[in-house]
């Protein structure tokens, strides 16, 4: 199990390749990669991600522990960046391995839902002439309900 909170860019392809090599004899690896996206009439030019260093790693580790209790997971990797990020850069990735695909798919979805709304990260979007903090979304909050977890 690996959790990395870092400002440096990472290469999701290389990370996946390393993860798959290290995880050993599994039947399934599921990954999700989040990428900085530009949209709208006045598109996002960059993101600043703030986090709570004293809390972040522990909060994410608790999510990984909860996923391992719930599903038959062989290994997990979570990488999440903070600081300044530009369009097209990878923000974060989750990789989960297991004997069968259902465990990896569901554990990855669970981790993503919790990382969205329970890991102490805050995104600020910069557009030409303006900057604004991203609001938490009700749909992200609702996504947690399906898991009915104590986290």
């Amino acid at each position: 199990m690996t959790v990395r909170i870092q400002s440096e860019p990472f290469d999701a392809g290389q990370e996946l390749s390393r993860f798959t090599t290290q995880t050993g004899n599994v039947g399934a690896v599921v990954t999700f990669t989040g990428i900085v996206r530009s949209d709208g009439d006045n598109p996002v030019t960059k993101l600043m991600i703030e986090h709570y260093p004293a809390m972040t790693e522990r909060a994410v580790a608790l999510m990984v522990d909860a996923a391992r209790e719930r599903w038959s997971v062989t290994d997990c990797l979570v990488i999440h960046r903070f600081g300044e990020l530009h369009i097209g850069e990878e923000i974060m990735m989750v990789a989960v391995s297991s004997a069968h695909r259902a465990d990896s798919f569901e554990a990855a979805q669970f981790l993503m839902d919790y990382l969205k709304s329970r890991a102490p990260f805050w995104k600020k979007e910069f557009r030409t002439g303006t900057a604004a903090w991203v609001d938490g979304k009700l749909e992200d909050e609702n996504a947690l309900r399906q898991w009915d977890s104590e986290l």
Binding site: A54, K116, S117, R118, F121, W122
Partner: peptide, 12 residues
Amino acid sequence: SEVAFFPPMTGG
């Protein structure tokens, strides 16, 4: 010893 205040989190 430490209390933190912040808006709803927007990770991922």
